[in-house]
Design a binder for these strands. Structure first.
Lengths: 132, 132
DNA sequence: CGTGTGTACCGGTACATATGGTACACCTTC
DNA sequence: GAAGGTGTACCATATGTACCGGTACACACG
């Protein structure tokens, strides 16, 4: 039903939660207005500390993925509310540049890389359609 | 002439060296057989500890970007020697998936994302041609 | 031998992560 | 008003790991 975290992963648990929520929003599995479990509730489900959940929620709120209403709960934000848009786009460009470098070292040329990216995009679209 | 590192960056100094060397190899500024400065020599240029350089070189060797010959020096490997090709390709795919998610949260659709990627590729090609 | 190479080891510092506990401010509901 | 649920702000603590530096060692070459 809800998400899982791997305590032994090199990716911090709070980061796994952030990534998973963002992915579900992007795929439309979570829609604006949807309510997330409370920090203590989710902490109970995952048997981890509530502070860890709180840290994840704070990061999601910082990115404007969720909105927090004291005393009521946390909810998925309306779309188009992202923060730091310019900086985050620049980060995306930097990531792409590193992809180009890595591709070269793995023996891929620009065409190979572009095709791989298009394949990932196609898979994404399939999954999004399939979930509808 | 040679590279620089920023001690105050959040990216570790050894990682900056790894990234920079890989980028230069990918751009053709460093060719197979080229010799890198010795750990102490480069440490002197950058006024940092030689162990930091050694750590960068070890990571580069692990990825088969360079080859180390005790007592002689370190040299750029022949192309097509990359290690862990499958795992590294999977990492690239994971990175691309996260790009798709992030793009969505920044209000970009698949077409926007693809165009941005193509622009980065074009810039890369320009730079590579310009350096020749 | 001497010199130059990379490397292994140890230690100190700092930071990130996660936990546990307590308390507080806010909202909804009874 | 009272009660209970919400996120939050603390604190202290523990743990693991990243980072960097100093020293000493092993190997290759001449």
């Amino acid at each position: 039903m809800w998400l899982r975290v791997d305590a032994r992963s090199s990716v911090p648990m709070y980061q796994q939660i952030v990534d998973e929520v963002k992915a579900r929003v992007a795929q439309g599995l979570l829609k604006p207005g949807d309510r997330l479990p409370s920090v203590r509730e989710l902490a109970g489900m995952l048997t981890i500390n509530h502070n860890t959940i709180a840290k994840a929620y704070q990061e999601l709120e910082r990115q404007r993925v969720i909105e927090v209403v004291r005393g009521r709960g946390t909810f998925i934000s309306e779309t188009g509310q992202a923060s730091d848009v310019q900086a985050r786009k620049q980060t995306m460009v930097d990531t792409m540049r590193k992809l180009v470098v890595e591709a070269h070292h793995l023996g891929m040329n620009e065409t190979d890389l572009l095709r791989l990216f298009q394949r990932v995009l196609a898979q994404w679209r399939e999954q999004r359609e399939g979930e509808k």
